[in-house]
Write a protein that binds this DNA or RNA. Structure first.
Lengths: 157, 157
DNA sequence: CGGCCATGGTGCAGCAGAGACTACCCTTCG
DNA sequence: CGAAGGGTAGTCTCTGCTGCACCATGGCCG
């Protein structure tokens, strides 16, 4: 199901698979440093709410691939932690609209800032050409991936 | 705490932070596809055992940053799932040596293969120059990161 | 050689997070 | 009014982690 690659032109997949973990480590380091006490499901929920501010519980449950009541429980914990706000919709009073709180907004901002700092710390030790190559390669990769699967999941903050 | 960057030469940190998620998504996709029923702690334990075949429970607990009995329980579940083997050491009969099973070896192999395939699928749609740039950038990044923190955690398979 | 403590693991609660299923309540709308 | 849509609540199960008590083994010292 893939394009043929002659023996002359393998796409470096294995080689890239070997060196990519370093980049992943930077991500994880940032998340671990900033949000050590927020579980993965909770964190993913925050990302969903951030993307679709005012989403209702059914929508959230759908995006997190869990049933409604599970999402409700998850929200209970997030509300208890002061990370999301349940706002009863005024148009349809059955619905609950979910919003980030200043606290969770700060959390996400802090995470991204921290990640960029960690990233910058490593980039500093690279050659300018290396940095440019990295940016170019990742940009092309990102575009190519988007061309393939315009939707496919995986929250990465 | 970092090197000064003139207004002319920021190290692309923000830009890279924006395009890196696509690469992360490929990782997560592979893991999700191959090991949907293995939890993160369990998976990390497998990686530890793979790296240090024959490790004992204390060592595992240390690497996973948990206390002994937690590691023991985790192992209970892994053994129940047929993913690790508890082998009583013959030198010191108190110790338990942990080994991967054929099943878990196959699992990890499968994961890596799948990931390379997913990666290759995207790389196929990049230009040769883009692939080379990606490989070069990531390789330098990896080296730079290793120079900084020779140990720092984060299992990424 | 016979205690004694250190070392390696397990057993037994106990707690929080996460998910599911079911039953139920409120609102809206035909 | 009654059906459909949106959420909550009760109950269960499982994982993950902890603390503490306990059992083995192994090394040491008198």
């Amino acid at each position: 199901m893939a394009v043929h690659h002659g023996p002359d032109g393998p796409p470096h997949a294995a080689a890239i698979d070997d060196v990519a973990p370093a980049l992943l480590a930077a991500w994880d380091t940032a998340r671990e440093r900033v949000t050590p006490h927020v579980s993965w499901p909770q964190f993913n929920a925050l990302l969903v709410v951030e993307r679709e501010e005012g989403i209702n519980l059914r929508g959230l449950a759908g995006q997190l691939d869990m049933i409604l009541s599970s999402a409700s429980r998850l929200c209970d914990r997030l509300v208890a932690a002061g990370l999301v706000e349940r706002v009863p919709g005024r148009a349809d009073r059955r619905e609950i609209a979910l919003f980030l709180t200043p606290s969770s907004r700060a959390l996400l901002d802090n995470l991204r800032t921290t990640r960029r700092e960690i990233l910058a710390g490593v980039l500093d030790r690279m050659t300018p050409a290396g940095r440019t190559a990295l940016l170019r390669g990742l940009t092309e990769f990102s575009e190519a991936a988007a061309r393939d699967a315009p939707d496919s999941g995986a929250q990465t903050a």
